[in-house]
Nucleic acid binder design. Structure first.
Length: 486
RNA sequence: GCCCCCAUCGUCUAACGGUUAGGACGUAGCCCUUUCAAGGCUAAAACAUGGGUUCGAUUCCCGUUGGGGGCACCA
């Protein structure tokens, strides 16, 4: 085909919890970048934390990404099955691969076994800190053979540390931030293999990004400081590193890192609140990325064709639930009524509106109330009163407390009971005439009528609402409400 | 404490040396209207700060301040 290497991106979560908003944005950017360039998007599970990784997290992460509609070309399909040609996409199933590279580095003298216990390491670290030294000493770097044997004889299992240069600097190119420089004398020899034999993050990540031929590593800002270590590992292994792009973080409304206390942070919570995945995607795409015309609404296809790294922001962005909500409303309004009902199914079910009770078709109600829906959960919330009596809101009670309300409702009930046809226009004419005859202002009649019939002060256009509700329900509710009024 | 990153309306952002500093969310007002929305119009609202460089800096450089991230056998 051509000689430009294939674009391959990846999202590599550690399964130690649900997928949060920040993780979604990273996933989205990787996915968009791959799709934009006709490349491949890989999902890799970094489960090397033996104590915190859980299978439930894996499932939650897979579900989250699927719900968002971000399909991956390679990676796990579930806990057992995988797709892709690069071996397992679960790191814990790739152990021999890391161990082989560790052996190589050991042989070449680029790494060494370290027998220090956590406590010993901590002591050394503390000492360096107190002396104001930039980097703690690595006691095992020059272990004598005798000392090494002593440790082995004592039954100590070594970790393996990678040797970082003592002087000079490590310069890293970042697609978003440009050149970033790190002083080597500040970098400590890092553990690449734990005493358990498992790899550490920085090592496994490098091995796999190389093995999986990842061309662009797009990840959160918190990884920028891992760059010197990773850059040196690539170099030591004789590998060409991929290109890197470090995304700024997402902040909560109070300017601190987005977390639980800012409300919902798990993607699945957004799903359960009634957000549309395409709206969340659009919103998140704009959180740290923009086009030069500051366009807001993108179709999925437009998003793919417009997205690129140069539009990415260097400074952290604050998550704004109000704007997300607005955007979801935009997407809701763009849906056909039948589609709204279909997508709202889980919410309608939960509200007992599926199977649909006797009454108007859900679809016609969706059409009626479409521009008011901000969330899928609003669909049942704004239509349930058509099917069953709901408790009157405080505002509705206040309207019904008007002195003339009782008489108005009784009058309307008597007037409408035999009235035909029970359809929008004739109903309006009839009720307006009623107002004129009794010398009442329209509002004095319309407001209590709405409140009595729907239990609320906001809602669909009045006369069409009456039509859809049907004579029987309207009359029954008018009578019942009137009877309750003193 | 040390290292790294960042800095335009309250928030997301546009601008790539010369603009009345633009758009969007949110907020306020008006219009539409039987309510609530939606829609339309209008308004208030920003270049953190001090030095340079330049004929000219929001834009380039340095300092300060502020914010964020990282300093694990966690990822």
């Amino acid at each position: 085909m051509n000689d430009t290497p294939e674009i391959r991106t990846r999202f590599a979560p550690s399964p130690t919890g649900f997928l949060h908003i920040g993780g979604v944005r990273t996933t989205l950017y990787n996915w968009l970048f791959a799709r934009h360039h006709g490349g491949r998007f890989v999902l890799r599970i970094e489960d090397t934390d033996e104590v915190r990784s859980t299978v439930d997290s894996v499932t939650a992460i897979l579900d989250s990404i699927r719900w968002l509609g971000l399909d991956w070309d390679e990676g796990p399909l579930d806990l057992e099955r995988e797709q892709g040609d690069f071996g397992s996409y679960y790191q814990m199933r790739r152990l021999p691969l890391y161990q082989e590279q560790v052996r190589k580095l050991l042989q070449e003298g680029k790494a060494y076994p370290c027998y220090c216990t956590r406590e010993e390491t901590e002591v050394v670290r503390q000492a360096a800190k107190e002396k104001g030294e930039p980097r703690p000493e690595d006691p095992c770097r020059r272990l004598t053979e005798a000392k090494r044997r002593e440790h082995e004889a004592a039954g100590r299992k070594p970790a393996v540390r990678f040797i970082m240069p003592d002087e000079g600097e490590t310069v890293v190119d970042d697609l978003i931030r440009g050149q970033v420089r790190f002083e080597n004398k500040l970098q400590q020899d890092l553990v690449i293999q734990k005493t358990t034999g498992g790899p550490t993050y920085n090592f496994a990540c490098v091995c796999d990004d190389h093995a999986m031929r990842i061309s662009h590593v797009i990840r959160g800002d918190e990884h920028l400081s891992n760059m010197p270590a990773q850059a040196r590992i690539y170099e030591a292994l004789g590998w060409q590193p991929p290109l890197f792009a470090h995304l700024s973080m997402i902040m909560g409304p109070d300017g601190t890192k987005l977390s639980k206390r800012h409300g919902a942070t798990s993607v699945l919570e957004y799903r359960d609140m009634g957000f549309l995945p395409e709206a969340l995607r659009n919103y998140l795409a704009l959180l740290g990325w923009a086009t030069s015309d500051s366009r807001q609404i993108f179709t999925p296809e437009d998003l793919i064709s417009a997205f690129d790294l140069p539009g990415c922001q260097k400074n952290p962005a604050t998550f704004d639930p109000a704007k997300l909500s607005w955007m979801n409303g935009e997407y809701m309004r763009a849906l056909e009524p039948a589609e709204i009902v279909r997508r709202a199914e889980p919410f309608l079910q939960r509200a007992g509106l599926i199977p649909q009770p006797a009454g108007p078709a859900l679809e016609s109600l969706a059409a009626l109330e479409r521009e008011k829906f901000k969330l899928l959960s609003d669909v049942p919330a704004r239509t349930d009163f058509f099917y069953r009596e709901t408790e009157a809101t405080d505002k509705a009670r206040k309207v019904l407390a008007a002195p003339e309300a009782k008489a108005v409702l009784e009058g309307l009930a008597g007037l409408l009971e035999p009235f035909a046809p029970f359809t929008e226009k004739p109903l309006e004419e009839c009720i307006r005439r009623f107002c004129a005859e009794r010398a009442l202002k329209a509002g004095q009649v319309f407001h209590p009528l709405r409140a009595a019939v729907s239990g609320r002060t906001d809602g669909p256009t009045l006369f069409l609402m009456l039509e859809l509700m049907g004579r029987e329900t309207v009359i029954a509710r008018l009578r019942k409400t009137a009877a309750r009024l003193a």
